[in-house]
Design a protein around this nucleic acid. Structure first.
Lengths: 204, 204
DNA sequence: ATATAGTTTAACCAAATGGTTAAAACAAAG
DNA sequence: CTTTGTTTTAACCATTTGGTTAAACTATAT
């Protein structure tokens, strides 16, 4: 008989627990004991599966940043009209972030605190993210289909508006009085309002 | 004779060192020894001036978040035309961030990791930041001067585009190949491109 | 000169934390 | 039943780190 009841193997439980603890507390703030507790096991077993905090963190972080960057390339590289691309990107990226709200803060944090390590370990074969996007903008501008705009700024604007709300979430919630559901609804709305906002600005 | 050569008192040196260490490493990652070293003193003297890490951190963090929020209210509350207000805000806020590049990540980080503490200690008498702004938008919309837009989204868009580049700086620099100066120039440009972008989108 | 506040040195303490170890318990497969 | 890999228990270790202490030194003001 194959394993049926255990949907989660111990390793998966550990990885899940590690992800949530690391993403919430960061490398420095995370405690191995907390991870063990959250996984429902003990510290000995935790080290039985993963040699060190470093190794475990690296594993989680690699996965996290892959998630953080992968969606971008996929959609930006698609072969569809510019405006559709913008709409798709915002919608898909926000969807991903809704499922991983702590992702941006965590990834950008570690990239800030350990820039050299980040560059070495996570930026090996990654190409310029928005080269193709830049060309496309240039082309559309030349064809006089949209107003002239520096692609770097446009790209930065787009990802800023998508990502930042998740980074500023607690402050935004406190300062607007939103609760979890209202915030979720607010960000859900942004899947449409951001593309709208961008396209209004680009349209001649 | 009054003290002349010492522009910085020891207390100021400590506060300066603490600010830079805390903002770069966060509460959990900061080391008292590092702060002492950076201030050019020893740990004993550090504790002679500030009882505990907690106290020192609170001091720095209170000042940091005051800086982070104060500019916003000031400009948003000014009594000038909407578009001027947007231009002023972006320009002044980005200027402030250029002088405190680690501020946003640090403040938002601690707000995320200790939301309750943040709310208690730092959000006592602070009012809704953008109430007045919202009214203004509503009024302009009604007067048919600008396109209809939800003020919350507009406000979020604006602060996102201003703040996010500083949070994503290391990743952005790596992925675009910019160096310090180029990044500075890029953000400097944004003082104009962001208001442009927003106003193009709002104009009927 | 002497008292006072600032500063250094260096040793020290207690707690937290990452990591180890060894023995025992357990479960499943051959 | 025995073997094998997994899991627990619980003690333990080494290091880091926040924080303390006491004695000595320095400069300045009275």
């Amino acid at each position: 008989m194959v394993k049926i009841q255990k949907q989660d193997t111990t390793e998966q439980k550990i990885l899940g627990a590690a992800k949530s603890v690391f993403l919430e507390k960061g490398m420095a703030g995370a405690r191995m004991q907390d991870i063990a507790d959250k996984a429902g096991i003990n510290k000995a077993l935790l080290h039985y599966y993963f040699k060190s905090k470093e190794k475990l963190f690296e594993m989680i972080f690699k996965e996290a940043s892959a998630l953080f960057f992968s969606k971008i390339n996929g959609i930006i590289d698609a072969d569809i009209p510019l405006f559709d691309k913008i709409e798709n990107f915002c919608s898909a990226y926000i969807d991903m972030l809704l499922q991983n709200p702590y992702l941006p803060l965590s990834v950008l944090n570690e990239a800030t605190k350990q820039p050299q390590r980040f560059k070495q370990k996570l930026w090996k074969n990654r190409e310029q993210i928005f080269i193709k996007f830049a060309h496309e903008i240039a082309s559309e501008t030349q064809k006089r289909k949209i107003k002239s705009i520096d692609p770097a700024h446009l790209f930065m604007n787009m990802i800023s508006m998508c990502i930042f709300p998740f980074i500023a979430r607690p402050v935004w919630m406190i300062s607007t009085g939103m609760d979890e559901n209202e915030f979720r609804a607010f960000v859900e709305e942004r899947k449409k309002t951001i593309p709208q906002f961008i396209i209004e600005s680009l349209n001649k």
